[in-house]
Design a protein around this nucleic acid. Structure first.
Lengths: 176, 176
DNA sequence: ATATTAAAATACCATACGGTACGTTAAGTG
DNA sequence: CACTTAACGTACCGTATGGTATTTTAATAT
């Protein structure tokens, strides 16, 4: 997971993984069956460990502005996201993934977008809503912008630049 | 260029290129010297052919709103950008490129951002400016959003969805 | 202590890549 | 027509990948 997180997953070979983990290749195959199975397992673990933080932020049910700030800080400022996000890295190179991993990517994506949409629908009901976007549109938009921010960080862009960009992009959802 | 445009450049081998072009591999090496030289040549030609359109739109010196609409339509609706953009595809996988190509990518990027910045500075002087972003910030922001749109199209996302996303993102630069 | 079985790593396979040595064809020259 | 020279493509090289057959190690049972 560390290797996939730091570098592009497409550039991390199983040989390198085995060397890093001090594990023989047949051992890895005994446990995970194939590269696809292994990558899927890495992504699942990453989702539980890291991506869950996004769901946590949404589940708090805080006001819109506060929640947006939380998401912005997570994607652009959080030190652990300095080298980007395994999920978005894999999503960006989906065609290179095996079917199991692609499936997991797609499930995680729906999950995230749905969580955003549900949160925004609640905000609309509470009249804590300031744009004329639908909850569905806003969810996809925020998802894309978070992905962009994390991709920029993976590319080594300055954290503050990514922050101001993301603040700008999500300001369309804010009052006034 | 067609192959790099349709697929991810990293997934197009020189063997495939030679087969497609009905050219022997030594012939390609006699002309371009290395894969890096070849990819750089492809990118240069692409920039002249396609990316020049962005510079054209800016060079017209049209009002801000009209220019933004032009950029949005180009990135999200133009049929020839249906499979994304060679430049942004290569930029996304910079670490896989040779030094010559990386250099060209970086030059093209500065060129595009500078063109945007210069255009925005002119708009500010004409008092055709409605956000509190600096011309520099706006240039980098618009560049990133166009890149996002073209990446989304390359990933097969629906043209209309990309369009509304980009309209939303660039609405921060518009009046009202 | 020895025979049997289960587990784990070494050493290997086929494939595809970027890149090139070398034999072959074709063009120019007397 | 013969001879030289330049271009060109076949066939190959070294390397790295995902994946496995085979051998070696370790543990268990007699």
């Amino acid at each position: 997971m560390a290797a996939y997180w730091k570098d592009d997953p497409a550039d991390v070979s199983l040989n390198a993984v085995c060397a890093l983990a001090a594990v023989s290749k047949p051992a890895l195959y005994r446990v995970f069956g194939s590269e696809d199975g292994f990558v899927r397992a890495v992504l699942s673990r990453y989702a539980e460990t890291v991506l869950s933080e996004i769901f946590d932020i949404l589940a708090r049910g805080a006001p819109l502005s506060e929640t947006l700030t939380g998401l912005i800080r997570f994607a652009s400022l959080d030190a652990k996201m300095q080298t980007g996000c395994v999920f978005f890295k894999m999503r960006a190179g989906q065609h290179r993934l095996g079917p199991q991993t692609r499936d997991t990517v797609s499930t995680l994506e729906s999950g995230a977008v749905n969580a955003l949409q549900t949160y925004f629908e609640t905000r609309q009901r509470t009249e804590d809503w300031y744009s004329d976007l639908t909850a569905d549109q806003a969810a996809r938009y925020v998802f894309a912008q978070i992905g962009l921010a994390l991709t920029q960080r993976a590319a080594g862009e300055d954290s503050q630049t990514v922050y101001t960009d993301l603040v700008t992009a999500l300001s369309v959802l804010r009052p006034g």
